[in-house]
Nucleic acid binder design. Structure first.
Lengths: 330, 330
DNA sequence: CTGAAAGCGCTAACAC
DNA sequence: GTGTTAGCGCTTTCAG
C-alpha cells in the first residue's frame, strides 16, 4: 500500500517551498509569481501525478469541499433529478456531493444534520421531510455551514421552490376552460408546504369563479392512498374531474377510475403535478404541471457555492395531456 | 461563527487526557478502562454536545469514513435504488455516502475516480459506464481504496451482479411455454456486460429448443432507440413477440406496437427486464425479470465496510405480466 | 489503565 | 516573490 506524494515532495522536486506549491494549487499566485517558478511547480505536480489530500485541506481550512443533499427519498425520481442538479454544479466547482437519504423520517434527518456538521460541509441542500429540527440547523449555521431549503418551504430559512400555488391555479383554470365543473381534489400531506400551496392554488381558481370543490381530501403523496381515496370519493360523489397533488397520485386515481368503469377523460378528467419522467409512459398521457426539479438543484448548489443564499421562486409550466379534454356542457 | 468543542476541551472538562477521550470515542477502552473514567468522559461529551471532526480523523488515519457510489445516472430509478442500498448500510455504520454521477461519460467517471482518491474514501461502489479506466482504479487500489463493481461486470474486478443470463433464459422459456415462437430481441449496448448476458440467456433458451431468433438488434438502453428499432423490425419481419433488454425499452416497444395497430399481448408479446418501480404503472402490466437493485447496493456496501470484497451473483425472479399471455398455436 | 508527545498534509501569517 | 513556521483536531505509539 503505497502512499501518494505530498506537497513537500512536489516542492522538493520543483526546488521550491511547500507554500509556493500551495499557492499555485490555490491560484494565490500572490500578486505576481514568477512564471518560471509556476511552471516548474506545475511540471513537478504533473511528474508525480500529485493530487492534494482533501482531509488535510479541510482540517486546515475548517471547511471541506463538499456539498450535501439531504432529501426524503432518492429513489423518488423527482428528488433524484434535484440531486442530479446539485451534483452537476458541485462537480464543476471541484466539489464532492454527499447524498443523505432521510427515508422520510425526521429523526434520521436530524442525525444526518449532525453528521454534516461533523463533516464541516460547505453547504446543505435540504428537502425536509416536514418541519426540520431547528437546533440542528442552528448549530450548522453557527459553524458557518450554509443551509438552503429546496422544493418545500420552511419558515425562517432561505428556500428555492417552484411556484406551486400559481401552477395549481393555472392548471385548475385549464380544467375549468375545458368544461369540467364538479371537481374533487386529493391533496398531499398537510405538513408539507407544496401540498398546501397546490391546494391553495386550486381553491384560488375555483373561488375566482365563485365555485367550490366537490370535496378535498388530504393523503400522503403515495399511489396507494390516492387510489383508495379516489375509489371512496368516486363511489360517494358526483364528479367529472379529480385533481391530484402529484403525478404518482394522479396515476392512482386513473387506476381507480378504470376499475370503476369511468373512462378517462370522457367520464372523468384527471390531473397531476410534477411532470416526472416516467409519467410520459402512462396512457392516456397525463395533464400536469412541470416543476423544474433539476433547476432547483442547480440554483441551490450555485448559491451555496457563491455564499449568497436567498429565497427564489421558480416559474412552472402547464403540460396539457390526454387525461383532460374538452367536454360538452352538461 | 462559533467553533465546535474539540477533544481537548472534552478532556479538560472530564479531567483526563485527550488520548483517553479518543479511546472511549473509538471503543479502544484498552483492555479495561476504569468505568468511572469512561463515565466522566461520556458525561463531558454529552455536556459539550461534542462531535469529533471528521477531517482531523481522516487526516490522521489516512482514510475517511466515507463510501462512494459512482454510477452512470442517478435519475435512473434502477441506479437510484442501488444507491439507496449503499446509503442505508453506510449510514448504519456511521459513514457518509458520496454520490458521483458519471453521466454515462467515461471521462467524467475517470475524473471522479481521481477525486475519490483525493478524498481517501473507504471504498467505492462502481457501476461503470463501460470499461473503466484501469490506471485510475489501480491507483485507488495502491492507496488501499477498495473498489467493488456492481450490476455490470468488469474483468479482473470483484463484482456484485444479478444472474442476468439465467434470468433471461427463464424469461424466454416462459414466452416459449406460452406459445410464442417468432421472437425478436432488442439488446442493450454491446459494451455493457448485462446486455451481453441477457442476450446470451435469450439465445440459450432458444438453442435448447433448436430454435433461433427472428432477429437481434443492439441499441442503447433507451426508450427512444427501442421505439425506433421496434418500428423498423415490426415493419420488416413476421413475429409474435419482442423481448427487450430492459423495462424502459420494453415500454418503447409497446408504444411502437400500439402505433402500428399491433395489440399487446394478443398480436405481440412484449417482455422487459429489471422490474423498476414505475413499470407497475404501465398497462398492460409488463412481463419482466426482477433484478434486486437495492440488494446489490447493500451487499456491495457491506463488503466494502467489512473489507472482504469478493464477487457475488444474486438470483433473479420472473415477474409474469399481461404483456405476454398464452396463445393458441399457429 | 492513563498521559505525553509526535505528526498526518496542508495553508496562511509573517518574515525577508 | 518566496521561504519559514506554526498549527488545524485527531490518533497512536511509547512511557510509566
Amino acid at each position: 500500500m503505497i502512499r501518494q506524494p505530498t506537497i513537500r515532495q512536489v516542492a522538493a522536486l520543483a526546488g521550491v517551498s511547500p507554500s509556493t506549491v500551495s499557492r499555485v494549487l490555490n491560484g494565490n499566485d500572490g500578486q505576481h509569481m514568477r512564471p518560471a517558478t509556476r511552471d516548474r511547480v506545475l511540471e513537478a505536480i504533473h511528474e508525480l501525478d500529485y493530487t492534494p489530500q482533501r482531509a488535510a485541506r479541510s482540517l486546515r481550512r475548517q471547511r471541506s469541499q463538499v456539498l450535501a443533499i439531504l432529501l426524503p427519498d432518492i429513489s423518488n425520481p423527482f428528488f433524484a433529478l434535484l440531486a442530479r442538479g446539485v451534483e452537476a454544479v458541485a462537480f464543476d466547482a471541484g466539489c464532492s456531493t454527499l447524498i443523505c437519504d432521510s427515508d422520510n423520517l425526521v429523526p434520521k434527518e436530524t442525525r444526518y444534520l449532525s453528521l454534516l456538521l461533523a463533516e464541516r460541509v460547505q453547504g446543505v441542500v435540504l428537502v425536509p421531510v416536514a418541519q426540520p429540527d431547528r437546533d440542528a440547523i442552528d448549530r450548522l449555521a453557527r459553524c458557518g455551514v450554509r443551509v438552503v431549503v429546496a422544493d418545500r418551504e420552511v419558515r425562517g430559512l432561505p428556500t428555492i421552490s417552484a411556484d406551486n400555488r400559481a401552477g395549481s391555479r393555472m392548471l385548475t383554470e385549464h380544467l375549468l376552460e375545458l368544461g369540467y365543473r364538479q371537481i374533487a381534489y386529493i391533496a398531499g400531506p398537510s405538513d408539507v408546504s407544496t401540498a398546501n400551496d397546490r391546494l391553495a392554488g386550486f381553491l384560488d381558481a375555483l373561488r375566482a369563479r365563485n365555485m367550490s370543490p366537490v370535496c378535498v381530501r388530504h393523503s400522503p403523496y403515495t399511489y396507494e392512498s390516492a387510489y383508495a381515496t379516489a375509489k371512496a370519493i368516486l363511489a360517494r360523489s358526483v364528479l367529472d374531474a379529480i385533481v391530484a397533488a402529484n403525478d404518482l397520485m394522479a396515476v392512482g386515481v386513473m387506476r381507480a377510475a378504470e376499475e370503476l368503469g369511468r373512462a378517462v377523460p370522457d367520464d372523468l378528467g384527471v390531473a397531476g403535478f410534477d411532470h416526472v419522467p416516467w409519467a410520459a409512459f402512462v396512457r392516456p398521457r397525463l395533464t400536469t404541471v412541470e416543476v423544474p426539479a433539476r433547476h432547483m438543484g442547480t440554483e441551490a448548489a450555485r448559491m451555496l457555492l457563491e455564499g449568497s443564499v436567498e429565497s427564489l421562486l421558480l416559474p412552472v409550466r402547464i403540460i396539457p395531456g390526454e387525461t383532460c379534454s374538452r367536454r360538452s356542457m352538461r
